[in-house]
Amino acid sequence: MKILVPVKRVVDYNVKVRVKSDGSGVELTNVKMAMNPFDEISVEEALRLREAGIASEVIIVSIGPLKAQETIRTALAMGADRGILVQHDELVEPLAVAKILKQIIDEEKPELVIAGKQAIDDDNNQTGQMLAALLGWPQGTFASVLAIADGEMDVTREVDGGLQTIKLKLPAVVTTDLRLNEPRYASLPNIMKAKKKPIEMKTPEDYGVDMTPRLTVLKTIEPTGRNAGVKVADVAELVAKLRDEAGVL
């Protein structure tokens, strides 16, 4: 079966973002960008399924600016087979992304979509669930273990308080959580090979999807900071302050 993995180009997780002084958003100029970490886990899982003989082809899709080609190229260097870039330079919302992915899936007919549970820029945690809804497919969100057999898949999910296992009929959408796997690094030969792998260029118009955002961003501000408090000398002083000054004990 084919597996489709959507990936997003986001600010690298090590970068502390700065809010623009005019409140219009966060500063993205000259900031290091990388593949969304949950998407790396998705790519890795798809590659493992191909290596286990369960999947035949891993297709990477990104919806974003021209530079998202680099993100797709990273996934190809990890070992994915080919890519599709749907170029859109403005902000993308999960609902529009899910609509484009649905159209691509109608053409490509994968049996499994593995998406990251959330992008670490907008922190929405929506795209996989929305895509499953539009396709009429079941969803296995926040996955930490996948087991595929006989047209069905057991998904172990990280839920509040522990783990839950559900059984889904394929085709299905999975969203990945941190502990599903440890993504590989691309080797130099594979980085070279990835340069020759095909990336198909598309636009939202090709799929007839209206990208106009449904949410209007009115402003973006820095969170109210906390100031450093006092250092205490020992446990007795700490407990005394917690009892008398803070009143929390």
């Binding site: 600010v11 973002v17 809010v19 966060v26 820029d121 949410l215 209007t216 961003v217 501000i221 969170p223």
Partner: peptide, 14 residues
């Protein structure tokens, strides 16, 4: 919150 709480956005839904 966006970016892990490093920015707070005000959004209006249409």
């Amino acid at each position: 919150p966006i970016y892990a709480g490093n920015a707070i956005q005000t959004v209006q839904s249409t």
